[in-house]
Simulated scan of single mutants.
Amino acid sequence: MELRHLRYFCAAAEELNITRAAAKLHMAQPPLTRQINQLEEELGVKLFIRGPRGLSLTPAGKFFHEHAIQILEKLDTTVSAVRRMVRHSREIFGIGFVPSLFYGQLPILVRELRQKENLELTLAEMTTVEQVHALKAGRIDIGFGRLVIDDPEIEQQVLFEEPLMAAVPEGHPLDGTTPSMQELAEYPIVLYPASPRPSLADIVQGLFRRRGLKLNVVQEANEMQTALGLVVSDFGITLVPEQVKRQKRDGIRYLYLAESHITSPIVCSRRRGEKPTETMKLATEILDVLVENRRRGKYP
């Protein structure tokens, strides 16, 4: 399989018409049809249903289309970044992160790194699982997430454990209290992210499960902000990392839990065995200071 197969397939999937797709690609229709057939033969699945009115995607075709788009977009991003690097003689340093970390120390790390000359930072929101894939593919250089993942190619370090807090709507029966896990289990709960898994949602479910508590999950949201919006709507309550309390949002109360040891790890991921660059050394030095400040209570 070559990149041209992905580009040809995406054009056909977007147009759902071989004639229009061929025109878009500035090629004749028969060669495009052959390329699509070759791709289906290599995959061993049918990607399109051929009908008198054109094409339609099979379930496998829809799935492949979603991922093919991501691959091509990431390739285009990488090519653009390399061209910028050569044009400006700048080093590119990629950081992947889960969104909740941008309420705490991560912006300080970014600000400090941006002071380095001839360095271009690229930032990407992604789950820990996505960070591992991105590190192995070379799309990022360092990742910050919440899951410890066993992968021989990835080196992980737990920077610290962050307390989890309950986010409840203003005026909720738990508002103003320090609820226990058992009390939280009595109310509908919103989990996030819904996908990809595993994620913080699995950490939260595990915390309740290990205590023999059954959760009433009324909704799973893909984004934390969506989950908080559901909380404001009195759809349910949710658990959030402590750093999120820095976000002032009307209609929400953040409550510390009765069990102080209910936490989520902050995990730093890098490629294993790779000789650190000067930028990586600088990032490590900054992280050491931020983690020590955190331990001393200098940051929330």
Rank of each mutant, 00 (worst) to 15 (best):
Thr279Val: 14
Pro276Met: 09
Glu274His: 07
Pro169Gln: 05
Glu161His: 15
Ile262Leu: 11
Gly54Asn: 09
Asp150Lys: 11
Pro300Tyr: 07
Leu39Glu: 00
Asp151Leu: 00
Ser260Trp: 00
Glu130Ile: 00
Leu213Trp: 07
Ala201Asn: 04
Leu39Arg: 01
Glu162Cys: 08
Ile189His: 01
Thr284Asn: 07
Val204Asp: 02
Pro198His: 03
Ser80Met: 13
Leu43Ala: 06
Arg211Val: 00
Asp150Leu: 13
Thr19Val: 14
Pro169Cys: 08
Asp250Met: 07
Gly138Arg: 03
Met1Asp: 03
Glu242Asp: 12
Pro30Ser: 05
Gln219Trp: 07
Val45Asn: 02
Val240Lys: 03
Gln70Gly: 01
Glu125Cys: 01
Glu183Gly: 02
Thr178Gly: 01
Leu57Tyr: 05
Val232Trp: 07
Tyr254Ile: 09
Gln29Gly: 01
Arg53Leu: 09
Arg7Ile: 14
His67Ser: 05
Glu2Pro: 02
Leu55Glu: 05
Asp150Trp: 09
Ser80Asn: 12
Ile203Cys: 04
Val291Arg: 11
Leu32Ala: 07
Pro196Asn: 08
Leu215Cys: 02
Ile149Trp: 03
Ser56Arg: 15
Val190Thr: 05
Met280Ser: 13
Asp150Cys: 05
Gly145Phe: 03
Ala60Tyr: 09
Ser100Gly: 00
Gly104Asn: 04
